[in-house]
Amino acid sequence: MSEFQVKSDAVDVDAIMRQIRARVQEKRGADYTETEVQELAKVKLEQFLDPKGVRSDLVAQFRKHRTVTSAPPNYEFEDSTIYETHRGLLRTIRRVLNPLLKLFFNPNRISGALHIQSKVNNDSHQRFLRREDMDALYYELIHNLALEVTRLGIEVHNMKMRVESVSSRVDFDERRGRALEQVVQYKPARSGSQRPPAPRPQTAAAPTSPSTSTEPLSTAAATDTSEAVTSGVSGDSPVSEADGERRRRRRRRRRRPGQTRDEQVTDEQVTGEQVAAPHAVNAPSVSDIGDGPVQGGATVDSPADVGSDEK
């Protein structure tokens, strides 16, 4: 959501609305109205389709040039058509004299041909009308497709912008992550004689020790070396100490994602140097934090201890 700059006790609704609209505009990327989409569609189609003489305002052009085709004159031709007349007497005479006519030529064939032609005319006109209706639909369809393609183009453009923005954020997060990793100072690896033994969790003596209390992780991590040493001394066995040491070594040997063996070796050397540095003694290692609550510089792996932390 947006944040607004409110500089005084009084706010101007107009200014706020302008900020909101700008914010909405920014969120939506290029914000096009329906008219603007139509305009863009025209431009794009003119660019791509002009060589073929197709216009983007297809429907408008179609409607402009469309004329309603009237039916061409046709005729009905039946057997009796050649004898038809409005005078009844004449029609009778023609019928009476029909056999005489047939002596000279066969009018039935002519009547049949003209009858068929009349039907053909009718059929083709009907087909032409259907074709015209279909044409309208096709024009409409192409027009709508053109619009949709334009709309999709715009949307793809917006999506690209959004992907770019997201990827830049991811990059930034990665960089920040790396920077944070570098900032964290690793706990020194002490030599066996110098390093105090880790406290044994949930021993009979543990509840009496203030170091095993329900102190938050960060607070526990921040306790100074002397406290760490004190709390770590009590009730620790050589077996657990050796285990902890091995675990820590294993963790240190683990490579970070994307890290080469050479880089790891260099890191280990650096860590070794840090161990020697007296100021780095206090801080817990990242791996320690990851494993469980830190108490006096040692890790507590026991679920019971974790449970006591959650109290």
Binding site: S2, F4, V6, V11, V13, I16, I20, R21, V24, K27
Partner: peptide, 26 residues
């Protein structure tokens, strides 16, 4: 009155609703 906001679209509705929350900025 300078006593409220208006909306025309959903986006504006959501933004303005946020602005006018009691815990919001304005």
């Amino acid at each position: 009155a300078n006593g409220g906001l208006s909306y025309d679209t959903f986006e504006e509705f959501a933004e303005t609703l946020y602005c006018l929350e009691a815990s919001g900025p304005i």
